[in-house]
């Protein structure tokens, strides 16, 4: 078990180098000189362009820029933005907020998605099953920005149940509305997966056997059906955790959440290489860690899966 964790952690090292390299090359491949953007519609003199390119190492070849960045990162310095801010500081400021937003969204997904999926799966073809299908369909058929605008307008402005935008310090209560929007999209996936999985599991012999033994529904459903149905759902939620953080870009923008997604989009617009690469690399690391946790969870959910070696 412990060896399994160590092995997975060691695998994280090539992932780190691989992702920094790929992202660095992607940003490098973006056409357009970030220096020119800083001047708006005004065209700077060649001397100014040269001076600023030198300042940000933009005049150097790809590999030397990459190693320059890597050297900084290995010393714990994630670089500075073109505006002279430390990326470490930016991440320390924005990451906790996004993490909280993503956690809240996951809780909503688990709470509502799994519960609704379970009911829909157990009462397949019933009223609840069909109603949940229609509602989730409505949600996934809406692009995230439409859903966000509708939610902001309806709950924030018309009904006044929540602040239309996130307020000082991003308290949990303000994060609820954006978290619902964020969860909404994947809610449909979670619900349908749970439902499908529940239907499949309930037809297994061990479920019939459990009922046959005379166990009550109250025991069979949570212990035998739900637990065995959670594998694909867990994977999906883990996989989605990365999306929650990155995909929060649009939602964070609309609800003014001071998070990473927002910061990343701004950095992409500025072609701010160190900032983009650092943010995405951190996301990769978080993602790797979450996945290790999920794989370990498999073992708990399904005793037949064992980690050997």
């Amino acid at each position: 078990m412990i060896w399994y964790i160590i092995r997975r952690l060691l695998q994280g090292i090539p992932v780190f180098f691989g992702s920094t390299f790929i992202i660095f090359s992607m940003v490098f491949a973006m056409p357009g000189n970030p220096v020119l953007r800083m001047f708006g519609d005004r065209t700077p003199s060649p001397e100014q362009i040269a001076a600023l390119e030198a300042k940000f190492h933009l005049d150097q070849p790809f590999l030397s820029r990459y190693f320059l960045y890597l050297g900084d990162v290995l010393q714990g310095n994630l670089g500075t933005t073109y505006a002279g801010q430390s990326v470490n500081e930016i991440l320390a400021r924005t990451f906790p907020t996004t993490l909280r937003l993503a956690l809240l969204a996951v809780v909503i997904q688990l709470g509502i998605g799994v519960l609704a999926g379970l009911i829909a799966g157990l009462r397949k073809g019933g009223v609840f099953d069909n109603a949940s299908l229609v509602i989730t369909l409505l949600i996934i058929s809406m692009p995230v920005f439409v859903f966000a605008f509708v939610a902001q307008w309806l709950f924030g402005i018309q009904l006044g149940w929540a602040r239309p935008t996130v307020g000082p310090g991003a308290p949990w209560s303000d994060l609820l509305l954006p978290a619902i929007v964020l969860a909404g999209l994947n809610l449909a996936y979670v619900l349908r997966l749970t439902r499908a999985s529940v239907i499949e599991t309930s037809q297994n012999d061990f479920v019939r056997m459990a009922y046959g033994k005379g166990l009550t529904r109250g025991r069979v459903i949570p212990v035998h059906i739900l637990r065995n149905s959670m594998i694909p759902v867990t994977t999906n939620i883990a996989a989605d955790f990365g999306i929650l953080i990155v995909g929060a870009t649009v939602t964070e923008g609309i609800f003014n959440v001071p998070g990473v997604g927002n910061e990343l989009f701004k950095a992409i617009n500025r072609h701010d290489t160190p900032e983009i690469v650092s943010i995405v690399t951190i996301l990769v690391i978080v993602y790797v860690l979450v996945n290790i946790a999920i794989d370990l969870l498999y073992g708990v959910l399904d005793p037949r899966i064992r980690y050997v070696k």
């Binding site: 001047f39 907020t97 000082p168 617009n269 500025r270």
Partner: peptide
């Protein structure tokens, strides 16, 4: 030339933020 918020790339979706606690 000042970069207006419209002209600047940040026009669509950009900086993150919140009111500051210490406003009081």
């Amino acid at each position: 030339m000042r970069i207006t918020r419209i002209a600047a790339a940040a026009g669509g979706i950009a900086v993150a933020a919140a009111l500051v606690l210490s406003g009081c």
